[in-house]
Design a protein around this nucleic acid. Structure first.
Length: 831
DNA sequence: TTGCCACAAATTTTT
DNA sequence: TTTGTGGCAA
């Protein structure tokens, strides 16, 4: 190696001497097990830099694949710093799909595609399946397109074609046929789906007789794969094929972070790598540089029970830091209120919002959190969910662009042929598709015969004719205009813009903005292309759109990031809130109890979530949660029980503590009522962190966090009433750490409650009762605390007395409201 | 053919 | 709770 020109970078401190040598110099297969926070990206980058600098491997002979654009960008960024921009530019760095799309444009002929193939996304694919089902005369209620499609996906991820399809059960009989027809349609449309991008390349690479295949097999001298635990069979075969001659395959990953099994990822690939490559050098990075001792130990506790994992001793030299805070909340509203309250505390103490993240297991959980964040006027950003490019209006325009670029793409044509309305209705469309099927052509090609044929009425013919003229003029335009110009023309000539303008509603206005943003994104693309000295083509833009995920758009503005745990992989934050840590939700339990492997993956998912936090981790769970339209009662997640006791501290929100005490006495009104609601019985009284669980007979303490001595002057609460009672003190937030649980005084006992509470007739509204006792606004004054049935806890800002007194209250989670005093209960802070 | 309404269904994670 | 779909009437 060259000693004369020392590299301008330091080797990763994460590596010891032998590891460093292996990474810098190993020929042949190399496997790096990189635990969370162990600096794996540095390792890959360091290796690439070494190959270029010491081993003089031409950059264009090096391929580094990732799973997300973000990871690819990060890698490029770091490489630029190490080996310079010129070198980095020539490296092949990108996602599997982006790299394959690029290769496929070059080798399209070998794959039997036109150069201008389009990439179908999920909804396009579903549209194809829908059409296939119709053609095969299958009931789409018995065979939901989604399920059929996911079955097809599964097959393709394993690298199987319709010919290899193995039927299992009656459902597959239909799926098999659909699969074949689906592939046929894609081919006919000159389209590929996500799986095809890899599959087409794979078929070429694995074809021993194909000259293009041999070219591909020789193309790269080194292939490096990031997040190797996430590869599926196709991806594995692909990188194996590309390194067939050199065996220079570097893989970096962490089997503990394999969370994409449902997407075809196969953990066994990384676990069996040594078996497939007996000569592989294996390195384990076990030191965590990211998180505090408590977090790292918690992470290890969560992942330890995992079966069959590659043994790794994860440790850190960092300080212990704060214990992991486990918060029991009453409902999802209570949970959100608590979380947001503490986010606000952090921000008020100078923490940047960009260092805070809130995670949840499913998107459905985000709504409540979002509402509270918005009410509190805290800056936040939701990652995932509805993507920009999937919005109806954006998708419409994209379909126009794609159809104009590739008229054979039926899905696109059918989507836009009558948008805006051109009086081309269902019956005409039916005939179009029928004709297309009969003559084995595209829908576009069946327009002409129908116009000249006799099966349509004159009105329908006229409509078709005008569409054809429009479309042809757009295609002509496409030959000369730039993508952005073409887009403008489409908006204009198709009448789409006018349609939106005429609608004149707030939604339409938002759509116009979105469409404008789309145009802007094309302009951006053109400018980038120009800067990179490359032609800006329509296909290029469309490809980029197809391969860009929302997770790549995490903005760098200071906002609290809210996302699913899946979306959080690869990210890190100082403070992390993991919400919804309950059985059924996390681990998530679907309808089919195929458990086993699924549970393993949920555990790994929990591990991923925990290891995102650098300094403080807060985990919340709620005893009650309205999700998917109905209220469910749940127990804290089993994963909480795996946290080492010394590293956590469990507390409850005031509302949760309140509830627990309400439940305890047997035969009481509340318990009876809960049992009627049918979801749980006595167990609920034991609701608390598993490790803090006390014997049933032990006295129950009711920790009222941040408001010691707080007493609620009300008496009995119906279950409904407690929905959002939050007895915090929003304006007097302590700095972290939060008070420990033990010392909290009992706010009140069930016995106490019974004594002071008058008997109540069933159905009687408790609120009015309490107001009677309170005598108007008695006791309410600015600064006082009140609770409202819907808005929860708040602080009085102003009192307007009168016959029906009203109060202005600032609610935690709902902002400022003016409310009649009789709808409020107030909280007495004095004993 | 379109638009509205009612009803039903489903409701994880995504390159 | 939201989203989608189907039928029906104009």
């Amino acid at each position: 190696m060259s000693t004369s020109s020392p590299p301008s970078y330091d080797p990763p401190p994460e590596l010891n001497e032998p590891q460093r040598n292996a990474v810098a110099h190993a020929e042949g297969p190399l496997l790096v097990f990189a635990g969370a926070g162990s600096g794996k990206t540095r390792v890959i980058v360091y290796r690439i830099a070494s190959l270029v600098a010491f081993h003089e491997v031409p950059p264009y002979r090096i391929l580094a694949v990732t799973f997300t654009n973000k990871a690819a960008a990060e890698m490029k960024h770091r490489l630029t710093g190490l080996v310079g921009e010129a070198m980095t530019k020539d490296l092949w760095v990108g996602t599997f799909h982006a790299v394959c799309a690029r290769l496929l444009r070059r080798y399209h002929a070998a794959a039997g595609l036109e150069r201008n193939f389009v990439i179908y996304d999920d909804s396009d694919q579903r549209a194809v399946v829908g059409r296939v089902l119709k053609e095969l005369d299958l009931d789409d209620r018995r065979y939901p397109p989604r399920q059929v499609l996911s079955r097809i996906h599964h097959e393709k991820q394993e690298g199987r074609s319709p010919a290899d399809f193995v039927k299992q059960g009656y459902f597959d009989d239909a799926v098999g046929e659909c699969f074949a027809k689906y592939e046929q349609h894609l081919k006919q449309a000159n389209a590929v789906d996500f799986d095809d991008l890899l599959l087409h390349v794979l078929r070429v690479v694995e074809d021993p007789d194909s000259p293009a295949g041999e070219e591909l097999r020789l193309r790269f001298h080194h292939v490096l794969v990031d997040e190797f635990q996430d590869v599926n069979q196709v991806q594995y075969r692909l990188v194996k094929g590309l390194t067939l001659h050199t065996h220079n395959l570097t893989t970096v990953g962490d089997d503990d972070q394999s969370i994409y099994r449902w997407r075809g990822a196969d953990v066994r690939v990384i676990r069996n790598f040594r078996r497939d490559f007996p000569d592989a050098t294996v390195i384990k990075l076990e030191q965590n540089y990211r998180s505090t001792g408590n977090i790292v130990r918690s992470a290890l506790g969560v992942i330890k029970p995992s079966a069959e994992r590659e043994p790794k001793e994860i440790w850190t030299a960092n300080k212990d830091g704060e214990p992991v805070l486990v918060v029991g909340a009453d409902s999802e509203h209570d949970e959100a209120g608590w979380v947001v309250e503490h986010v606000r505390t952090l921000i008020e103490h100078g923490v940047s919002a960009r260092d805070i993240a809130i995670f949840y297991r499913v998107h459905a959980q985000s709504r409540v959190l979002e509402e509270v964040m918005r009410a509190e006027k805290l800056p936040y950003q939701i990652i995932g969910g509805m993507r920009f490019f999937e919005r109806a209006e954006v998708k419409d325009i994209l379909c126009y662009l794609r159809a104009v670029g590739n008229p054979r793409s039926d899905v696109d044509l059918l989507r836009i042929i009558n948008v805006p309305s051109r009086k081309i209705g269902a019956s005409t469309l039916e005939k179009l598709v029928q004709t297309a099927n009969q003559q084995g052509s595209s829908v576009y090609d069946s327009i002409e015969p129908l116009i000249s044929g006799s099966s349509l009425g004159t009105a329908a013919k006229k409509s078709l004719l005008s569409f054809r003229d429009l479309f042809q003029s757009l295609m002509a335009e496409a030959r000369t205009a730039s993508p952005s110009q073409l887009c403008e023309e489409i908006l204009h000539r198709s009448g789409y813009q006018k349609m939106l303008e005429d609608e004149d509603s707030a939604e339409a206005d938002a759509r116009i903005l979105n469409v404008n943003e789309l145009v802007q994104s094309i302009v951006d693309y053109e400018e980038e292309a120009r800067a990179a000295d490359q032609p800006a083509t329509l296909d290029g833009y469309l490809e980029r759109v197809s391969l860009t995920a929302d997770a790549d758009t995490l903005e760098d503005t200071p906002r609290v990031a809210m996302m699913t745990v899946h979306a959080a992989k690869g990210l890190e934050f100082d403070t992390v809130f993991i919400t919804g840590m309950e059985e059924e939700l996390f681990p998530f339990k679907g309808l089919d109890p195929k458990r086993g492997e699924d549970l393993e993956e949920e555990r790994r998912l929990a591990y991923v979530a925990v290891t995102r936090a650098r300094r403080q981790l807060v985990i919340t769970h709620a005893s009650r949660r309205a999700i998917f339209g109905q209220t469910r009662y749940g127990l804290p997640s089993r994963f909480l029980g795996d946290f080492p006791k010394g590293s956590t501290r469990a507390i409850m929100t005031p509302a949760a503590a309140l509830m627990r005490d309400r439940i305890r006495p047997s035969g009481s009104f509340q318990q009876a009522s809960f049992q009627e609601s049918g979801s749980f019985g006595a167990r609920r009284g034991e609701w608390q962190h598993p490790q803090e669980r006390v014997p049933a007979a032990a006295p129950v303490t009711a920790p009222v966090e941040s408001a010691p001595g707080t007493k609620v002057r009300t008496t009995e609460l119906t279950p409904q009433a407690v929905t959002s009672v939050y007895v915090g003190r929003p304006n007097q937030r302590p700095t972290a750490p939060l008070p420990p649980q033990r010392r909290a005084p009992q706010a009140f006992t069930p016995a106490h409650a019974r004594q002071t509470s008058p008997a109540r007739a069933p159905g009687e509204r408790y609120l009015e009762r309490d107001v009677d006792a309170a005598e108007g606004t008695g006791g309410m004054a600015a600064g006082g605390q009140v609770t409202h049935e819907i808005f929860g806890a708040g602080v009085v800002e102003q009192v307007d007395s009168g016959p029906d007194p009203a109060v202005t209250v600032r609610f935690s989670g709902h902002g400022k409201k003016r409310i009649k005093a009789r709808f409020l209960r107030f909280v007495d802070n004095h004993d």
